[in-house]
Design a protein around this nucleic acid. Structure first.
Length: 542
RNA sequence: GCGCCCGUAGCUCAGCGGAUCAGAGUAUUGGCCUCCGAAGCCAAGGGUCGUGGGUUCGAAUCCCGCCGGGCGCGCCA
């Protein structure tokens, strides 16, 4: 039983007795930052004081008296302006260890009665070059978010969408062709919007070496796309990220999805002809200007396949969809949503959800790194992985709020020292493992261990932290905020390191030793579960 | 000019469905290994939360203006 929900129910009962007229009020149970304020606190009296025209402290006193105290609660205090602080009985805190060990890898996860279909679309890089650090941030965020949804019991699809046929791909083919003909980006005849990275030359060479015909632009296009797709897949694999579904923009045309989307938009009555083009009144849905659906040359703007694509998500039964993209795409959000609403299918206004992340600045040796040799104008995800390792890249890129700017300090991430938050958390895990190997046994088998000796202040802090993990995971999923997991792990690791330094685990007293080992086993389990959500390994030795 | 995002300690960043919210890490300084891993711990200093108003008993948090930074503003994707 979730202790927080339990306390909430108790306060509801007290409220119904003290002030039935305010029984509808929302009861908020918080975990105070300062342990001196108890294990839980409720500010109900402060919230209702005005409404009930009562002194908040007196109201708090009445609520506290009416609270049906049970064995879980050790102490109730009125503090400050009218807070009701609750101190739990040691037994209630210690139950966390038992829960963690009983549930193991499932601790922090929810078993949903019916799995909801959820899609996370992320990375979605077009195959015109190696993945850059922004894609890395999307990969880290998207994969962690997908893991969070899975932990909430949803059936999650990880999807990658890319354009394999547009103008950019045409430019790619032209660039490879130019390279194969011996041109360089500095030459006068270089394609106007050509790609300039060294990888273009690599592709040109291998195409020629394989006997490819330079005049066959279609063959060049296919070869270049296949090569770059393969490279992107390899990078993502090295990053530990997998996708369930890849959707090609070209398939939306061949399957008639684009045509039917246009038809539906026209049928909605919200389109009009102007300057030889077909427009959709997206301003009806909050856009700042109307958008072109069909250009005067008869082709479609990218807006149409975007709408058609998202319609397929809805049609495939995904009622919750999150797109992870760079904030430079924010203008598409209103547009896509407007297009979906205009279809008149009852797709809700806020569909789909978006995580828009700010750009990543890479710093090394105190200087910003702007280019890599292969890609030319940007730092690649592969560069980062090569420099600091997969675990550090994943942990770093997911450890900030998505909409915060992010400075990736390569020197910090590669430091195998106390400065590095990844190693700090992993070290805590390895340390627990080390205690068990020192003791000469496994971390398993403590599920039924008596833990009533875990009554010290540091132990109480750790127990509290372990107990709140499921709540942290649920919040992170709801808020689309994987960074909360990274912060949680750092705190749990820190509290464990403190405990470890202050108390000896392998003491003489067998009962105390067993209880402490059980606590350690629980800490190890939660560290491992949290790291798994982020796609970061939990090493037994470092 | 318009739209979205950001502005919290020297640096990198949490907190933003108001209160028990002035925080973490790092950097600096000083301590802790004959004892389970010092990739660790303990302690100190450091911020009028960009700024000016407003709402509120109470604002880093909500609202408005301004300043500064990023991104976007195409019949490109």
């Amino acid at each position: 039983m979730d202790i927080k929900a339990h306390l909430g129910a108790l306060f509801k009962t007290a409220l119904a007795k003290v002030a039935p007229e305010a029984a509808d009020a929302e009861v908020l149970i918080e975990r105070p930052r300062d342990p001196a304020h108890g294990d839980f606190a409720c500010n109900l009296a402060l919230q209702l004081a005005k409404r009930l025209k009562q002194n908040p402290r007196q109201l708090a006193q009445q609520l506290a008296s009416a609270l049906p105290v049970d064995a879980q609660i050790a102490k109730i205090e009125i503090a400050g302006a009218g807070f009701i602080n609750i101190r739990l009985a040691p037994r209630a805190l210690q139950a966390a260890v038992t829960s963690v060990l009983a549930e193991g890898a499932a601790y922090g996860r929810v078993r949903a009665a019916q799995a909801q279909k959820v899609m996370v679309e992320f990375v979605s890089a077009n195959p015109t070059g190696p993945l850059h650090v922004g894609h890395g941030r999307q990969a880290a965020l998207g994969d962690a978010l997908a893991a969070l949804f899975e932990a909430q019991g949803h059936a999650v699809t990880r999807e990658f969408y890319y354009n394999d046929a547009g103008a950019q791909i045409h430019n790619l083919a032209l660039s490879v062709q130019a390279r194969a003909r011996g041109m360089t980006p500095e030459d006068a005849g270089w394609p106007a919007d050509g790609y300039r990275g060294a990888y273009i030359d690599e592709i040109a060479r291998s195409f020629t070496a394989g006997g490819g015909q330079l005049d066959d632009l279609e063959a060049l296009r296919k070869y270049a796309v296949a090569t770059l797709r393969k490279e992107q897949d390899a990078d993502l694999q090295a990053f530990g990220v997998r996708f369930d579904v890849y959707t090609l923009e070209s398939s939306l045309y061949t399957d008639g999805k684009v045509a039917s989307a246009v038809k539906a938009l026209v049928a909605s009555g919200r389109t009009y002809e102007q300057d030889g083009a077909l427009w959709l009144r997206t301003t009806d849905y909050g856009d700042d200007k109307d958008r072109v659906v069909r250009k005067s040359d008869g082709s479609h703007t990218y807006f149409v396949p975007d709408v058609a694509y998202h319609l397929t998500k809805w049609e495939r039964g995904f009622r919750k969809v999150v797109n992870v993209q760079g904030s430079d795409h924010h203008s598409t959000v209103t547009r896509v949503r407007a297009g979906l609403q205009a279809l008149g299918l009852g797709i809700p206004q806020g569909y789909p959800d978006y995580i828009l992340h700010n750009l990543v600045k890479v710093v090394r040796g105190g200087e910003e790194v702007k280019i890599s040799k292969r890609a030319g104008s940007y730092v690649t995800l592969r560069d980062l992985i090569d420099w600091v390792g997969r675990d550090a890249v994943r942990f770093f890129l997911v450890s900030r709020r998505a909409d915060a700017d992010f400075v990736f300090d390569v020197d910090l991430a590669r430091a195998q020292s106390d400065e590095n938050p990844v190693y700090y958390v992993q070290y805590a895990h390895a340390r627990v493992c080390s205690v068990f190997s020192q003791w000469g046994g496994e971390a398993g088998g403590f599920g039924a261990a008596p833990v009533d000796s875990l009554a010290g202040p540091r132990e109480a802090v750790l127990l509290q932290r372990l107990a709140e993990f499921p709540e942290i995971v649920a919040n992170a999923a709801r808020e689309l905020a994987p960074h909360a997991i990274a912060f949680y792990l750092r705190e749990l690791a820190g509290e464990f390191h403190s405990y470890y330094n202050a108390e000896r685990i392998l003491v003489e007293d067998g009962a105390v030793r067993t209880a402490r080992l059980a606590l350690c086993a629980a800490v190890r389990q939660v560290l491992a579960n949290g790291l798994a959500l982020l796609g970061v390994s939990a090493p037994e030795r470092m």
